[in-house]
């Protein structure tokens, strides 16, 4: 018990430790090679942009973080709900599969980010087009993974409930859907990262707030420390979302963690 507690401490500490080592090396490189701030700012400069009350206040960090976070969360929720629902419909009905699959394959083959300028014309500025881009980029991994999970059921397992005259609904609720959970979570983890990418791309093209907007704005003034600060915040958003899903995965599949602990 004491050992597993120690293991847990080590597990949570090691990423922090890696991060600290990374920051120290970064700082040393900047000092040793005397690198100009607009090429590579030192971590101290970047952190001061984020946390020093006098400098930080003019960037309105919370406003931009809030905007991007909102886009990421809404687009991710949309992706998860629609992605899983459509995957279930595709496996449920052959007709629906034949109707919708060609459209999905066609859309998936498009470079979806390239649609962002078009959305600017259709949906205007800001929130809506940004979540549309994020949704389009992140949607497919969830659908594809969920469909794979719903179909990856042992044929004998289906026989086991079929001879008991199981309804299609029961086969989905009691077998196919629980069976697809690991696949769904794998898909959600991929799409979470993609939601961040999509939101940023949307903000690059047309927005008046958000970290993507700030990143581009700072670039116009060659304000490299602000750009690095934005990157840091964006990866923090990505990591938080990713870990939240990981946590959700552990909670909703207790039988899996048992296996891992063994």
């Amino acid at each position: 018990m004491a050992k597993s507690g120690l293991d847990r401490v080590r597990k949570t500490l090691s990423p922090v430790l890696y991060f600290l080592i990374f920051v120290v090396i970064w700082q040393l490189i900047v000092i040793i090679f005397n690198i100009k701030e607009f090429v590579l700012p030192s971590p101290i400069t970047v952190f001061r942009h984020l946390f020093d009350s006098e400098i930080a206040v003019k960037y309105h960090w919370w406003r931009h973080i809030g905007a991007t976070l909102m886009e990421v969360i809404v687009s991710f929720a949309l992706t998860a709900v629609l992605g899983i629902s459509i995957a279930i419909l595709i496996t449920w009905s052959k007709l629906f599969n034949q109707l919708i699959s060609p459209i999905i394959i066609l859309f998936n083959s498009l470079p979806k980010i390239a649609l962002a300028p078009l959305f600017l014309i259709w949906f205007g500025y800001g929130f809506i087009p940004n979540i549309m881009v994020a949704f389009l980029v992140a949607f497919f991994p969830v659908v594809i993974n969920t469909v794979a999970g719903l179909n990856d059921v042992d044929e004998d397992l289906l026989d086991l409930v079929r001879y008991l005259n199981a309804s299609k609904k029961d086969i989905f609720l009691k077998i196919r859907i629980p069976n697809s959970l690991p696949y769904i979570f794998a898909g959600l983890k991929i799409s979470a990262t993609m939601c961040v990418v999509g939101s940023i791309v949307g903000e690059f093209i047309a927005a008046e707030k958000g970290l993507g907007y700030l990143l581009r704005d700072a670039q116009a003034f060659i304000d490299t420390p602000t750009m690095f600060a934005c990157l840091l915040l964006l990866s923090a958003i990505g990591i938080t979302l990713f870990n939240t899903i990981g946590l959700l995965e552990k909670v909703s599949m207790p039988w899996n963690t048992n296996e891992v602990q063994k």
Binding site: D154, D156, L157, D159, L160, Y163, K174, I175, P178, N179, L181, M253, W255, N256
Partner: peptide
């Protein structure tokens, strides 16, 4: 009642 070669238990 059917017993298959594999136990076919639901993991979850």
């Amino acid at each position: 009642g059917f017993v298959f070669q594999k136990a076919l238990l639901l993991n979850w």
